[in-house]
Design a protein around this nucleic acid. Structure first.
Lengths: 332, 332
DNA sequence: CATCGAAACGTTTGCGCAATCGTTTTTTTC
DNA sequence: GAAAAAAACGATTGCGCAAACGTTTCGATG
């Protein structure tokens, strides 16, 4: 592997001249610049970013610790973050915490060892240890999706608005018995969406019996089971609200298994849009989360914070967008 | 930031003892081990992986340069690669080349600067410069999905088998006029699938007129336009084969815009499965690519190659799986 | 024409670590 | 009890680089 001093020797100049030419950190005569550049080209020199980072104590690297990178919602966020970072010359370490708090802490520490300039974290259900560690080690961090700690910058969807819009839509169609399929317990999003649902319904003067609220759905299979349970009630719901993309897939499976027609037999709607939702039946009415914006904003905030660790923290709630389709009808 | 010598000073031992305790690289008496470990804990020492890598000239890092990380197909592969690497203590740099050969080369060089131990690349349409660079710099690399250069280890789907299975299915249903919506020209996958289609049809004694073959679909919108063109033919196809997930979405859009029923008016099938495909209409018959296996195998091969740069290259074709649903009917 | 200052470049150090080489102390052996 | 061997640890170097500090050269100035 060639080094800067190999270049210096080959060009007959000092290492500092080569360094300054490459980094444009001080004036070097045009002839020497050309000489150095030609030599770099000739011997195929590639700077060693490790040595550079060690010296500068800054790596131009950020860590992305996401609870489930295969979820399309997070995929979109990851994509936006990568794009934004790439634009700023940063590069991203991608890690999947698999929603495991132990693993999450390990990964955060691992990223710290690698001296990332900052971390973007989609926290697990029990993130306390990881978050405390981040605070103690003074590592810049922004939280995405699950917003649970005001000691950090945070970016997510305005869940209250999302749920309220959906409830408004249902109530306008005279639905009173609405079942909700929530996500994993412990997640800030689950709690927020549940509370927002209760609040929105109460506001409309509609009571929400506990048996229409189903949380603890950690995957599509759980959501399918929960939906079956809802539909077996003496007084089953006339509409089902799926609180994210996974629970929606699970709910639709149950509905299909029961050979129910949407929206004739039951209305369905939820949070998270699908790219194909316009072209397949039933065409689901959904609230699209602004994944691009979330990712971009998260990267922005992190870069700001890396620049100024003492800036006060912000919590940013971005607005979801209603995609009104045909999966909800009038209540019987 | 604490260093190894701060630990040494605080513990009253030498830096080499601390180093050896942390890396278990030579015997140290139990008392000193405990002393060192306690001191590490007490002052919150976190090793600097940069300095370690600089010394060892190995980073435990691999680069992932993917042509479109938001595509669910690649998301799944990325997820599998990350999981496999994580298991082996490696960490992944994620980059999106956006199918741009210039950008691809830049990213490869950038990853090289950061001294990744190896690269997994989903090559762009014109990857020659990047690939030549990788060969010249002797950087371990494995190609995924688009297999175009036997100088590298390669992992992808058996596209011939995928297309043949689909064609068999269509021919069994007496289809003779089959339109195919191919992906971006230049991609190895596009070429392979086109040739496999021609071969499979010819084998069945069916002629394939050029106007039923539509390539140059770089996104869903192009695929929609191409599908419209196919359906406007004097003798339109009785079946449409979409060669990947993006073209499928585009094709379905066109079919919906024309208010055609699947499979009553037209049969549809393609490559790439969707998680929701069982629960929405039309329920598409698809060939699922083995994304998990591809990702895992790619990581395996890369790690092997990092261990032995002179090992001969392998090209691995993994078998796709037919998900037979109801989007194809008998030809009129 | 001595002096000063600026222009252009070189020498060297230290970032934090692994591991080579070296030293001291203890144990074994005959 | 002296020599050899083993056990346990320490001092130092070099990985490749940025940049602080130092040196040389040359034109400008009074």
């Amino acid at each position: 592997m060639t080094t800067i001093s190999a270049v210096a020797k080959a060009a007959g100049v000092s290492v500092s001249t080569v360094s300054h030419v490459l980094n444009k950190t001080r004036y070097v005569s045009p002839e020497k610049v050309k000489l150095v550049m030609d030599t770099v080209e000739a011997i195929g020199y590639i700077p060693n970013a490790l040595a550079r980072s060690l010296k500068l104590s800054s790596t131009g690297t950020i860590g992305l610790a996401i609870s489930a990178i295969s979820n399309p919602y997070f995929s979109d966020i990851i994509c936006a973050i990568e794009a934004e970072c790439s634009k700023r010359g940063l590069i991203v370490f991608l890690c999947d915490t698999q929603d495991d708090p132990d693993r999450e802490l390990e990964l955060v520490q691992h990223l710290h060892q690698r001296r990332v300039d900052g971390i973007i974290l989609a926290a697990s259900g029990d993130p306390k240890r990881s978050l405390d560690y981040l605070i103690e080690s003074d590592l810049p961090c922004v939280l995405v999706d699950r917003l649970s700690d005001s000691r950090f910058d945070q970016v997510g969807t305005d869940n209250v608005a999302a749920i309220r819009t959906l409830v408004d839509h249902l109530v306008a169609l005279r639905h009173k018995r609405v079942g909700i399929i929530l996500g994993q317990p412990g997640f800030a999003t689950t709690v927020e969406r549940m509370n927002a649902f209760r609040a929105a319904m109460t506001e409309k003067g509609i009571e929400v019996p506990d048996d229409l609220i189903s949380d603890s759905n950690n995957n599509t299979a759980d959501a399918t089971a929960s939906t079956h349970r809802l539909l077996e009630l003496k007084e089953p719901p006339t509409a089902i609200l799926a609180s994210n993309n996974l629970t929606m897939i699970g709910a639709m499976r149950a509905i299909r298994e029961r050979k129910l027609r949407v929206p004739a037999d039951i209305s369905v709607l939820g949070i998270d849009d699908f790219e194909w939702a316009d072209y397949f039946e039933p065409r689901l009415t959904l609230m699209a989360q602004p994944c691009d914006e979330i990712g971009r904003k998260a990267a922005d905030l992190l870069i700001e914070r890396i620049g100024n660790k003492r800036r006060p923290c912000q919590t940013v709630r971005l607005s979801p967008v209603l995609r009104l389709r045909e999966s909800c009808g009038e209540a019987a």
